[in-house]
Computed example of a mutant assay.
Amino acid sequence: MKHNDTYAIGKDGVKWGPVERTQWLALQHVKRSYSDDVLSQLDALGSQFDIKEYARLDYASGALPVFSLSSLTWDKSKPNVLITGGVHGYETSGVHGALRFAGSAAHEYHQRFNLLIVPCVSPWGYETINRWNPNAVDPNRSFCKNSPAPESAALMELVSGLAFIMHIDLHETTDTDNSEFRPALGARDAVEHKEWAIPDGFYAVGDTLKPCPEFQKAIIETVEKVTHIAPADESGRLIGETLQQKGVINYATKALGLCAGLTNARFVSTTEVYPDSPKVDAENCIQAQVSAIIGALNFVDENES
């Protein structure tokens, strides 16, 4: 399969250079408002969170601020928990799930944990409904030394020096993975990326080096109360990875530069919601993300020693 048979930019067998990246960027347009959808919700959360602009990301289209929400009752004697959304800005329920949790359920956990919530790591990606940033770089492959993504570098700087017991990173797997993002990745890197079966339902991704199966199981069981869990495909896999247990696969998070590998937290999970399923709507997807956070926190609260 020729890469340019499946994607309009680039030449077969040739990685993208500045010209192709510029061509790609010219095709991206603002489709929704980060200010209206995300920033507008922050004022209402000021009564229970210390809200800080931790970075301002300078894009050619204009600068966009990114914010963190931390518990007002931050206490060094409590364990720290990190909740991130919108590393891939187009994955809507991750952003709004983090905000919904902050506004609806976080108050139940402030006494037990120090919560640090970053609802939208990649605001340009949110506005343009993109997996990549304007330089055609994937922030969720860029949590590494000398990160090529300013979105990732800013988050790394925010959490530097902090130890976390838990990190949950909120994502989605969408039909556009096959229709847009994997073809674009293949063209950019001059590597063929075959389509994979998009899982119909929620699943979680653990860390290969510290999979914590009981922790992942607790997330699945909590989410299952509000939405359906993705079944394995005919080969017993989800997105090409071997199923570890119901609704759970593992990734090498640090080696791949994933956000879930950002910290050295003992308990780590990446959520994956499928918003294109005929069985769900936008509200159900948000509820699934909130349930995942709650299931994770309850497990750590009951089992952390």
Rank of each mutant, 00 (worst) to 15 (best):
T270E: 12
S179K: 04
T84Q: 05
Y54C: 00
G206C: 08
S179Q: 06
A204D: 04
A252K: 13
S277L: 14
H228S: 14
G161R: 00
A218P: 09
G236H: 04
H228C: 09
K217S: 14
Q111Y: 03
K246D: 12
K2T: 03
A255H: 15
A8T: 07
A190Q: 03
C120K: 00
K210Y: 11
Q23P: 07
T222E: 15
I129Y: 07
T73H: 15
D200V: 12
P231V: 01
V159P: 05
E283T: 10
L209H: 14
K217W: 04
N284V: 09
A105N: 14
Q245R: 11
C212H: 11
R21E: 07
L258K: 13
G236C: 05
G240K: 13
A8Q: 12
A204G: 06
I294P: 07
V205R: 11
L25V: 02
F299S: 07
P231W: 02
R266H: 08
L170A: 06
D12V: 02
A187C: 09
R188S: 12
D43K: 01
A288V: 11
S152L: 01
V223T: 08
V66A: 02
F267M: 08
L256M: 15
D58W: 01
I117A: 01
R237E: 09
T6N: 11
Y203D: 07
E195S: 14
H171E: 04
E214P: 04
T84P: 02
L25T: 03
K254Y: 02
L297C: 07
A26C: 07
E241S: 13
A60D: 15
E108I: 06
D169V: 00
L45T: 00
P18A: 14
L258Y: 09
C144R: 15
G257K: 03
S68A: 12
H110E: 08
S277F: 12
I293M: 14
S269L: 05
D207K: 09
A197P: 12
L99Q: 05
N140G: 11
P123N: 08
S47T: 11
N133Y: 00
Q216M: 15
T128Y: 00
A218Y: 08
N80M: 10
S33N: 02
A292D: 06
G186W: 09
Y90N: 14
D207L: 11
F67P: 00
A60P: 13
E172M: 10
N80K: 05
A204F: 03
E195I: 04
D5A: 13
C259G: 08
S40D: 05
T84F: 03
Y54W: 06
A292Q: 10
D43G: 03
T22D: 10
C285K: 04
G206P: 08
E234P: 00
A252Y: 13
V280Q: 13
R188M: 14
I239P: 01
A163I: 05
V14Q: 15
F101S: 02
K76Q: 13
E221C: 13
I286T: 02
V14W: 12
K279T: 04
